[in-house]
Structure formats: C-alpha cells, structure tokens
C-alpha cells in the first residue's frame, strides 16, 4: 500500500447523496481478477453515454477535473456492497482522498486498506469545500494527515478526526496482515481454548 501523508491537489465536486458502490463501479466490471485497471470504468453510468462517449457535463469529464485527486461528495458515500473494487477504481483513476458528511462503514474501511483517506466533515463544511472545488484548479486543497487538517485555498485550516491506528498504517503504508501476525501467539492460545461443539468443515 502507498503511504499517505500530505496531498495538495484539485478537488472534484460530486454533489450527490448516497452514491452507492454500484454507481462507483457497476457489477459487470467486477469480473476482473486484478486490482488495477478499473479507473476507466469509475462512475461508468454517470460518466459515459450508452455508445461509450463521454457525458461532457459529468464532473470528471471536465478538463479542469481530469487530474483531480480529491473528491467532495454528499452524505453516505460508498453505501451498498463490500466490493473493494470501489476504492480500487477510485485509486486507479487517481483519487487519494474523499471528503463527505458521512460514509458507509465497509467502504470507509476498504479505503484505508488501499491508501485512500476518507474524511468525514459536517455538511456545512462540506458545502464550503464543494464551493472551493467548483473553482477547479484555481483552488487546490491540501490534506495534511499528520496534523489532521484540510487547508482551504484561502489558508483556512479545517481539523478532521481519524482513527489513530488507521492513521498510523496510512502514514507508514503498513500491511495489516504483517501487524496481525505479530499477535500469532495470542491467536494460537485462543484456538487452543475453542469450544468443542464448533464443528470443523471436513469432507465437503
């Protein structure tokens, strides 16, 4: 996983509530056996016409947002399925940070596993950032994870909350599995005391 510490970039405004994972990456694109290459299909139905041509008014099709690395969205972003293809598609497009009033739980967790920082801020703050984002690359936002602030184009600093453990993993690009394997003796001890009624799956 790539580290995330500091990001100054264009932010794209996507002022829709309840953007679901089918909207982020429709099921027909989940047939891949790789993590990469999904960026071209990100927001497919919002982004393309039926004939495959781009819809010019969709935000990420506008010249000033094609290189956006930050997305500002409405509440409950990422609701729906557990598909990690949703953060993979965002990452493959180049998005490293999503700011919204709230996120669905599984999507929120999946972002951290892929070096994407989801930031939840109150609706009125998101509305200000949405207005900043409307200025395109004339108004880049800075995300400072170490100090937990979003810096607006006018220099205003907006503090945000982030889980300390997840912040640590993101700052250092740490692999969760490696960290958990340090607990192997505790896992061994737990398994030694498992109740006898729990059947093993054998002879399938």
């Amino acid at each position: 996983m790539d580290k995330f510490s500091h990001l100054t970039a264009t932010a794209a405004p996507l002022n829709l509530a309840n953007v679901d994972t089918d909207k982020i990456i429709p099921a027909r694109f989940l047939k891949t056996i790789k993590r990469t290459g999904l960026g071209k299909d990100l927001f497919s139905a919002l982004r393309y016409n039926d004939d495959g041509t781009e819809k010019p008014d969709f935000v990420l099709n506008q010249a000033k947002y094609r290189g956006a690395q930050i997305l500002i969205a409405g509440e409950n972003f990422g609701c729906g399925s557990s598909r990690e293809h949703a953060p993979w598609a965002l990452l493959d497009f180049g998005i490293r940070c999503v700011i919204a009033p709230s996120f669905a739980d599984i999507f929120h967790g999946n972002c951290f596993k892929n070096g994407i920082l989801p930031i939840a801020l109150p609706p009125e703050i998101c509305a200000q950032l949405m207005a900043d984002a409307a200025l395109g690359h004339n108004a880049r936002l800075t995300i400072d994870l170490e100090n937990q602030v979003v810096v607006r184009p006018d220099g205003t600093k907006i503090p945000f909350e982030v889980d300390a453990f997840r912040k640590h993993c993101l700052l250092n690009g740490l692999d969760d599995i490696g960290l958990t394997l340090a607990h192997a003796p505790a896992i061994d001890a737990y398994e030694a005391k498992m109740p006898a009624w729990q059947p093993a799956i054998t002879g399938v």
Partner: peptide, 15 residues
Amino acid sequence: GIGTSEVEHVLATQT
C-alpha cells in the same frame, strides 16, 4: 461483509 483486503487478512490469520 468484508472487502478483499480483509478476505486476505482472514485467510492468512483467521482474525
């Protein structure tokens, strides 16, 4: 439900 990174995590660690 869990994402694919967590699927890998459970396969490797059962946790």
